[in-house]
Write a protein that binds this DNA or RNA. Sequence first.
DNA 1: GACGAAATTAACCGTCTGGAACATTTTGCG
DNA 2: CGCAAAATGTTCCAGACGGTTAATTTCGTC
Lengths: 253, 253
Amino acid sequence: MFQTVNFVKKNILSARKPLCYQHSREADLAETEEKKREKRGWRQNPDAVKRDILSVAIEEFAAHGLSGARIHSIAAKTRTSKRMIYYYFGDKKGLYVRALEEAYSEVRAGETELDLGQLTPRDALARLVSFTFDHHRSHPEFIRMVMIENIHQAENLTGSEVIRRLNLSAIKKLEDICRRGEAEGVFRKGLDPVALHWQISAASFFNVSNRPTFSAIFGEDLFSDDAQIKIRSQVVDAILHLVEPRPKPGEES
Amino acid sequence: MFQTVNFVKKNILSARKPLCYQHSREADLAETEEKKREKRGWRQNPDAVKRDILSVAIEEFAAHGLSGARIHSIAAKTRTSKRMIYYYFGDKKGLYVRALEEAYSEVRAGETELDLGQLTPRDALARLVSFTFDHHRSHPEFIRMVMIENIHQAENLTGSEVIRRLNLSAIKKLEDICRRGEAEGVFRKGLDPVALHWQISAASFFNVSNRPTFSAIFGEDLFSDDAQIKIRSQVVDAILHLVEPRPKPGEES
DNA sequence: GACGAAATTAACCGTCTGGAACATTTTGCG
DNA sequence: CGCAAAATGTTCCAGACGGTTAATTTCGTC
């Protein structure tokens, strides 16, 4: 499905821009009001403008990178103008940082839906891994933003307290599971939740981030829905194995 | 060590350019010859020029991405000129593709040093995983080139037969191990070498590619030499577990 | 309704950047 | 040597791109 992407360099096209942003519940009484504005005139709607810009910015930055994305292209895909971007976000970097934060927020918000309270530690962990794997798959634009940020040595992310907070809270679930598992004796002692998170992220992230090169070399087979389910269960198996109490106390650094 | 990177935006500096490329074994008889050229004049050395350009190109593309890298910056870090880049590589994309190929070649060349002939399948696999993990760590610029290529949907890699060949040969070792392990009954049946390679790559690659964001959020702890050894052994454990014959023949898709 | 602040439009600018044109020198070869 | 081809140096440019200035309109509020 994805194999022929047919890269369109300049897709500043189509999508006739509506003259103004419609406020939520006034489409009905718009007729009389709007006609007065038809010649020249507009409605103000700062929030909608900002949201519009941000969502397009995520698309564009995710697609072309920080320096690859073009402010004028972003503006073109928006219902507003380039000037507004500078008005609200200062400069390109400012927009990028906000877009990055926004991408993180959206994804972390989705994660909070996962409820593991009722499950045994083992089942909870399996569920968490499985969920994370799927969640990454369904948010490729977020993955791409993180890839790009990594290329930039995370220098923008470092400054963003917003993002650090979001991520630290994301590891809470894992910490709980570990604690419960250790307490019940079904997990090995001394587990490091961060290291475990590393393992889970590595598989889930790589699966999306490196799909293009991997499938270019080895074919798309591994990325069919069926194959992905297998891969995912392998990942779950591997992670569960890492938390199991060591059978023999022989030490092996 | 790495935490304060102190980004220098324009490092087009220092490094006095020698007037010409010295051929390998003529530094000695250079005195008489060279003095005639001192005013204006140069030696030709196409191969050295190409190599010089490519190595700088890898640095720059890896650091700033395809669109972030600047031809004139690349030229500046070279002992030759912008003109030569276009002379030998046509345009920016051409240079990028060659740099990508070069990066792959260098890394794959390093991999051939690994000899697993004498080891049991299990030991061989453990060794391969361990080696791959380290090898990725010691070639961050390669990792970054691949990250960048992924952001570009692998569209350049797709066209390069060179790279596909290099990579397919890279999986040969793994295929051998799997076959031997299955034959000896120490590995489970029906292993997919590509899927296994996916697992190994995921950990090894992510470890380098996502270090910036990961350590920005969770700290550098996991990336100390000691911690990396632990992580690596976890990865080895996890992979080995994946190839072990299933203890109970209960089927679990 | 008037008025100041916020939002939006429209036009403009200086620089950076990929790339090309043209000139000159070197090198292999008969 | 002489000559053509390859390699290198020098100079310049057209368009792209990030960003700005100034004018206009809308909106909340007194």
